[in-house]
Amino acid sequence: MGKPTRWVTDTKPGHSQWYVDRFRQLAAEGADLAGEARLLDALVPPGARVLDAGCGTGRVAGALAARGHDVVGVDADPALVEAARADHPGPRFLVADLAELDLAAQGEAEPFDAAVLAGNVMVFVAPGTERDVLGRVAAHVRPDGLVVVGFGTDRGYPVADLDADAVAAGLRPEHRFATWDLRPWRDDADFAVTVLRRPAG
């Protein structure tokens, strides 16, 4: 693993278990936890291969697998990966640092049709590694494949920085929305969902 992520440095002890418990409780209460998966499902062909980068407790990966996609989830936090494996059979879940991502070394050499970074992943990676994260994720996506990123715009990572980092990582911004259910983007929106594409040529 590389530099400690903000998930480690900017949260209190026990945060990972709190997060696991929170999403288990939300699921038990019947909360809608599949919004990101619905968007990805609409963007990719049936049975697509999808990388859930920063998968957390596996809710997005699990929802995508339930829709028939071949999903690999990756997170740097072993506690979250353990919970994902327990709660969402179907996807393969791996522990890995997104800034140094090399899934071929873990037996996943086949490229992905798309990758998703949901749940504020980009604002929890180690400071200064945002461009590396996008580059390593993009390297696992096939040419003409998609990388979809969502995070709160008030978390210290401006969308202008995301756009610059994406271009430097070889990705082309295509669309931006204010929510996962595609509400129009506004400059004062407190959340951004950005669809990036790895050019085919």
Rank of each mutant, 00 (worst) to 15 (best):
A200F: 08
T179A: 13
L146R: 00
A79R: 12
A115C: 03
G201A: 15
G68Q: 13
A115H: 01
G128E: 12
T194Y: 00
V50Y: 01
A189M: 00
E82C: 05
D188E: 10
L117R: 01
V60N: 03
W180Q: 00
A138H: 01
L196H: 05
S16V: 07
A178C: 11
R92T: 14
D190M: 01
R59T: 07
V123D: 00
D102M: 10
D132R: 13
P127V: 12
V137E: 10
P173I: 02
G14T: 14
W7P: 01
D132H: 12
L117A: 00
D144Q: 11
V95M: 08
T57F: 03
R197P: 04
H140E: 13
V8T: 11
L146K: 03
W18V: 08
R186V: 13
A160C: 00
H175T: 05
V81W: 00
W18C: 02
V193E: 07
D21P: 12
R198Q: 09
A61Q: 06
G58P: 03
L43W: 03
R24K: 13
D163F: 05
V133A: 02
V44R: 02
G54A: 10
N120F: 03
P127Y: 10
Y19C: 09
T5G: 15
A79N: 07
V50L: 08
A96M: 13
A109V: 01
P111A: 05
G47F: 04
G90K: 09
D77W: 10
W18H: 13
F124Y: 14
